[in-house]
């Protein structure tokens, strides 16, 4: 069909030289063709993203608590149960703490590394690759390896033992500083630090690459001019480089936030939900509730809450970057 269409168009019509600078009017057949090529994707996204989200939302408002569907309307009951649930409250705490720690370390470390690597050092590509290669691995591999490295009865602890430190890593159930908030204890679950280490190991390369690209986009003349004016390297960093990296930092934060908020594989492979749910995350809870306990309605509710938490970041960001484009 498409082929035939092409054949029928008058071959090699003479272009009128006078209309040259103006883009030629797009033929309506071509426009239709273009849209029809895009249409399957639009339909797919409409159904499989938006439609399915709607369906999950519907399930989350139902009474489907067992293996067989019961889609009668339950209102917000599942959400209310969730927010009163110890495990879910723990999940919210864990997600918040994990996201903050993870983003902060990844962004800072990535930026520092990028600044150092950008200093025209020797063996630059070797260093870069050492920090970047974990990006190519799966969270499952990362989880499996770090579970072994940080295993409390083995791993790096044999080194720390000699120093007299008894680190329990992801089996530690301490929450610091331990403020009671509702049913759960607020603070930083020490066990999460082990997970943050693994996640940082994997994702720092991402922010490093972005910052490097950003640094290389800063014109050398700008720095040179500042140096001529007698600015110190540190001043150059603070007054010129840092402000110009700000959009990159925004991107890094957004990307890391959406990874962190939906994290599942790393936790699943490395620690599971942990004693007293100190390393549990909504992603794991959703999986177990839905596919292990067959409580689809509650699983759907967790999924919708996860979606909303991501959307809070992403939607403004998408709108912002679309405006930036125009």
């Amino acid at each position: 069909m498409a082929e035939a269409n092409l054949q029928n168009t008058p071959a090699r019509t003479q272009p009128n030289p006078k209309t040259r600078p103006k883009r030629k009017k797009i033929r309506s057949t071509d426009r239709l063709l273009a849209i029809s090529f895009l249409l399957p994707s639009i339909v797919a996204v409409a159904v499989f993203v938006y439609g399915f989200i709607g369906w999950t939302g519907y399930v989350s408002l139902s009474k489907w608590h067992a293996i067989l569907p019961d889609l009668s309307f339950a209102g917000l009951e599942n959400y209310l149960t969730l927010f009163q649930n110890f495990r879910f409250q723990s999940d919210l705490r864990n997600t918040l703490i994990f996201t903050i720690l993870f983003i902060a370390v990844v962004a800072l470390l990535g930026q520092c590394l990028a600044v150092m690597i950008d200093k025209k050092i020797k063996a630059e590509s070797l260093f870069r690759n050492i920090f970047l290669f974990p990006m190519a691995l799966s969270f499952i591999v990362t989880g499996v390896v770090w579970r072994w490295v940080l295993n409390p009865s083995s791993g790096v602890n044999l080194l720390f033992d000699k120093l007299g430190w008894d680190l329990k890593w992801y089996t530690d159930t301490t929450i610091w500083p331990g403020i009671e908030i509702g049913k759960v204890t607020g603070g930083i679950p020490i066990a999460l630090i082990a997970v943050v280490i693994a996640a940082v190991w994997q994702m720092t390369g991402f922010s490093l690459a972005m910052y490097l690209a950003g640094l290389r986009g800063i014109p050398e003349e700008l720095k040179e001019a500042a140096r001529m004016d007698g600015a110190s390297e540190f001043q150059i960093y603070r007054k010129i480089i840092l402000p110009m990296l700000r959009p990159i930092t925004l991107s890094v934060i957004i990307i890391m936030a959406h990874i962190s908020l939906k994290i599942f594989d790393l936790i699943y492979a490395m620690t599971g939900s942990g004693a007293n749910f100190v390393t549990d995350m909504p992603g794991v809870y959703m999986f177990e509730t839905t596919f292990r306990s067959h409580n689809y309605a509650e699983g759907g509710a967790i999924a919708i809450i996860m979606l909303l938490s991501v959307a809070i970041f992403i939607v403004p960001y998408l709108i912002h970057s679309r405006k930036g484009e125009q």
Binding site: F52, I53, T290
Partner: peptide, 9 residues
């Protein structure tokens, strides 16, 4: 999107 939000359907 977190793919959990489309998994059930």
């Amino acid at each position: 999107i977190p793919y959990q939000s489309i998994l059930i359907p």
